[in-house]
Design a protein around this nucleic acid. Structure first.
Length: 317
DNA sequence: CGTGAACTGTTCCCTTGAGA
DNA sequence: TCTCAAGGGAACAGTTCACG
């Protein structure tokens, strides 16, 4: 095998970064530690680990190496165990990084409920995580909007659920109020359990006998530190840009727990749109619920799935 | 030494709204 | 209705830290 170190890292194209990652994996297979490879390339050990795992998982899931699946590729010991087969696969790999199939798909009922089971089993705060999972699927709201929701958005003062609520203008990313519906039994069960847990651990309490004892102006979801998910402004002054890293990370973690591959908080909105179409919604209704003002933007981002003519005409009468 | 969680700087791309 | 520029937020890719 030819050891050609990339002499100039100047271009930094994904191509050179991919071949570099392949070279790093070869080094580790040959017995180098992550640390050794890291100091040679002047990056941290964890960065090396990430690059190597990306290549290893790709090889394990495409090359068909007996005894090594994609999960096994996350462990160095197992990689070294199959070093010959991996080297052979790397020889055939080429220098092109795999195209990231940005294939957006709608989730099935089965995927949603098995994902929920996995989250329940793996999460350390499963009441909150289940509620976060279902609120995204039931409303199609953006994560930042979910982070901004308050107890009063979900509950009436008497403690009953506000089935017909609204994304207030301060909550909505677009700055325009829009309707919000809490009409899912699964979501309600998950949120009931989470809010009961909050009361029990005395987080964000308010007056007795109102809003189930919670402060109506406290965030609906508190992060692990008991405060709401932190929302930070950023960008140059004059701009109103906000981001909530904590809730983003939480959703990435949940999809990982749920083993939903290539699913993000953003792609979940496609599932919501698909289900709404299936129930007869038109573009303007979907735009209203998802917070997209322009109908042509709805058509572009969430195209209505077209059924084949034979499906449409089967048993027409 | 290896792994994973939490955190952060930068990049990418979705969405909006003005103008033709 | 189309095009285009720019705002706004999610994703990516990195680091630090804790732990077995």
């Amino acid at each position: 095998m030819q050891m050609e170190e990339p002499i100039e890292p100047e271009e930094g194209t994904p191509q050179s970064s991919w071949t570099l990652a392949i070279a790093m994996l070869r080094n580790v297979l040959d017995g180098d530690t992550y640390d050794a490879v890291a100091s040679r390339h002047d990056i941290t050990r964890t960065a090396v680990e990430r690059r190597i795992k990306a290549v290893a998982i790709h090889v394990a899931s495409t090359a068909g190496i007996a005894g090594l699946n994609a999960e096994g590729a996350a462990f160095v010991r197992r990689l070294r165990l199959h070093r010959d087969a991996i080297r052979e696969a790397l020889d055939k790999l080429g220098t092109e990084p795999p195209a990231h199939a940005r294939h957006v798909r709608a989730l099935t009922d089965e995927e949603i409920s098995s994902g929920a089971l996995r989250i329940r089993g793996r999460s350390h705060h499963h009441h909150e995580d289940m509620a976060l999972y279902y609120i995204l699927l039931a409303t199609g709201a953006r994560p930042l909007e979910i982070a901004r929701l308050e107890v009063r958005d979900y509950l009436h003062a008497d403690g009953t659920v506000r089935h017909i609520s609204s994304v207030r203008s301060e909550v909505a990313i677009t700055g325009r109020e829009r309707p919000l519906f809490f009409c899912s039994m699964r979501l309600e069960e998950a949120l009931n359990a989470y809010l009961a847990e909050r009361v029990a651990s005395r987080q964000g309490l308010g007056a007795d006998g109102e809003y189930r004892g919670l402060d109506p102006a406290s965030r609906l979801f508190l992060s692990t530190n008991g405060q709401g998910f932190e929302i930070k402004p950023y960008g140059s002054n004059g701009q109103k840009r906000f981001r909530c890293r904590a809730i983003q990370e939480t959703y990435r973690k949940l999809f990982r727990y749920a083993e939903l591959k290539q699913v993000t908080a953003l792609t979940v909105r496609h599932t919501v749109a698909d289900r709404l179409y299936a129930r007869g919604a038109d573009e303007s209704q979907i735009g209203l619920l998802l917070g997209i003002a322009d109908r042509s933007a709805v058509r572009d981002q969430f195209p209505r799935p077209l059924l084949s003519l034979d499906t449409l005409t089967t048993d027409l009468v």
